[in-house]
C-alpha cells in the first residue's frame, strides 16, 4: 500500500508517482501491489496497404486525365466518353470492396453486382448514342442471371432464410425491365417479358414451397 500525502489518498499500485497529482508516493508497509493488474497496451501497428493506395491513386489520376482530355477535345468528338472511364473505375472499386473483400451475404453481393453492372452498361449505352441495346437486352438478362444465381446458391443451403430478403429484392428488380417496356422506354419486348416471367414464377414458387420457417423469417424481417 502506498500513500500520496498531497492528495491524502491510498494507492494500490506499482507506480512511483501518484496517478492523480504526480507527487512521489510514499510506501506505507512495503507490501507489494495486490493484484490483479491490468494488461499493458501495445501500440497497434498501423495498417498501410501499399497496393490498394497505388490503385486508388491511379484511379483518381485516370479519371482526372481522361476528363481533362475529353474536355479539351470535346469540340471535335462531341461525346462525353470520359464518363465511361468514370463508370468503369467506380464499378472496379465496387467489385474490389463489396464483391471480393466484404464479408456479406452472397445474395447481397449478387444484387449489388446486378445493379452496378446494369448502371455500367446503361451508362456506356447512353454515352455512345443511346440505341438502347443495354435496356433491351443486357439489363433483362442480367436480372435473370442474378435471380437464377441466387436461387442456385440458396438451393440446398440450410440457412435458406438468410437469402430470402435478397431473393425478394432480385424478384422485384426482375420486373423493372417489363415496367420500362410498359412506359415505352424499351422497344424489344421478349427479353424483359422473360425476366418478368421468371420473377413471377419465382414468386409462385416461393408461395408454394415456403415452409413455416420461411414465413417466420418474413415476419421477422418485415416487422414494423
Amino acid at each position: 500500500m502506498k500513500k500520496c500525502s498531497k492528495c491524502n489518498l491510498l494507492h494500490n499500485t506499482t507506480r512511483k508517482s501518484c496517478p492523480l497529482c504526480f507527487e512521489i508516493l510514499e510506501d506505507l508497509d512495503g507490501k507489494d501491489f495486490q493484484g490483479p493488474d491490468y494488461p499493458r497496451p501495445v501500440p497497434e501497428p498501423s495498417s498501410y496497404n501499399v497496393l490498394l493506395r497505388i490503385i486508388a491513386f491511379l484511379s483518381v489520376i485516370a479519371v482526372f486525365v481522361s476528363a481533362l482530355v475529353n474536355a479539351l477535345t470535346y469540340s471535335k468528338t462531341k461525346t462525353l466518353w470520359s464518363l465511361i472511364v468514370v463508370l468503369g473505375v467506380v464499378y472496379f472499386w465496387v467489385l474490389l470492396r463489396s464483391t471480393f473483400k466484404a464479408k456479406v451475404n452472397v445474395g447481397l453481393k449478387l444484387v449489388i453486382q446486378m445493379l452496378m453492372l446494369s448502371s455500367l452498361v446503361v451508362g456506356i449505352d447512353a454515352v455512345s448514342g443511346f440505341s438502347r441495346w443495354s435496356l433491351n437486352y443486357v439489363v433483362p438478362f442480367l436480372s435473370m442471371a442474378s435471380l437464377l444465381a441466387i436461387i442456385a446458391v440458396l438451393l440446398g443451403k440450410v440457412k435458406f432464410a438468410e437469402y430470402l430478403l435478397y431473393l425478394l429484392a432480385a424478384v422485384i428488380l426482375g420486373f423493372i425491365p417489363f415496367i420500362l417496356w410498359l412506359v415505352n422506354l424499351i422497344d424489344v419486348l421478349w427479353p424483359s417479358l422473360a425476366a418478368a416471367s421468371l420473377s413471377f414464377a419465382t414468386i409462385i414458387g416461393m408461395i408454394v414451397f415456403a415452409d413455416k420457417e420461411t414465413k417466420e423469417e418474413l415476419k421477422k424481417r418485415f416487422h414494423i
Partner: peptide, 18 residues
C-alpha cells in the same frame, strides 16, 4: 477523490496503465 478524503473517508485508488 480528494473531496471524498476531506470528508474523512479512506479512499484506496487503483488504476490501469495511464
Amino acid at each position: 477523490y480528494r473531496l471524498l478524503s476531506s470528508f474523512g473517508l479512506e479512499v484506496l485508488i487503483e488504476t490501469n496503465e495511464l
